[in-house]
Amino acid sequence: MWKWLHPYAKAEKSYALSGKLMPWFLAVALPTFVVGIIWGLAFAPADYQQGDSFRIIYIHVPAAMMAMGAYSTMAIAAFIGLVWQIRLAEMTVAATAPIGAVYTFIALFTGAAWGKPMWGAWWVWDARLTSELILLFVYLGIIALYNAFSDKVLAGRAASILTLVGVINLPIIHFSVVWWNTLHQGATITKFDQPSMATDMLVPLLIMIVSFAAFLGFMVLYRFRNEILQRESHRPWVIALVQQSSSSVNKRG
């Protein structure tokens, strides 16, 4: 049924709707970030084994989780976009990929900075870190493919196909890496596994996860709006929008 809807009206409506939603996401992301980071850094008790270095968990785990969350978003959007041929969904794929890549990079970097005092090396071929590295490669591949096409409609579709191929592959990759890891260095205890966390430690972590998720939503909407503007830049509603913003700037100046 979507196909019969007028595509341009839909883009304009989606632009307006996402604009309305954006402040709400930011309203969740910013306070939770401030509360979570202060609680995690200053008030949560130090880990009895890892001391204060464990405080990296408050960005490592949320970033790693939301890197996966971003990929799930992309996979769902890609599926919708390809099956029902909705261009807006394909734009969502393109809009989400860079954020997912940045989150994955954060997860990797914080993992390394945590690993250095714990394992004595910046990089250990730990199963989770290795999976994250491969996830980063997959993200970069999708972004590179999207940027390589000059026609952004085709680019969105190609990126969607690659996203779906990746979503079938990622569980296999994760599974194979975990198995490979146990075979090659079975003795290493994963430092990120916290069997039972004290509530004082867990609550700020949950707050940070909410914050990262809300920020992901905010950025996806922002970039999604960018994608719409770029592709519809010749439509009257975008021109009206531009004229409005430039005239308000002139009045102020």
Binding site: I134, F137, V138, L140, G141, A144, L145, A148, F149, L154, A158, I161, L162, V165, G166, N169, I172, I173, F175, S176, V177, W179, W180
Partner: peptide, 26 residues
């Protein structure tokens, strides 16, 4: 995916190599 692109060769390896990791491992 890359056939219509002018510089598809390098891109092909960037896309394909990460996905072939499980085969390598197993």
């Amino acid at each position: 995916l890359t056939i219509g692109l002018r510089k598809g060769g390098v891109l092909l390896s960037l896309i394909m190599l990460p996905l072939s990791i499980p085969i390598l491992i197993f």
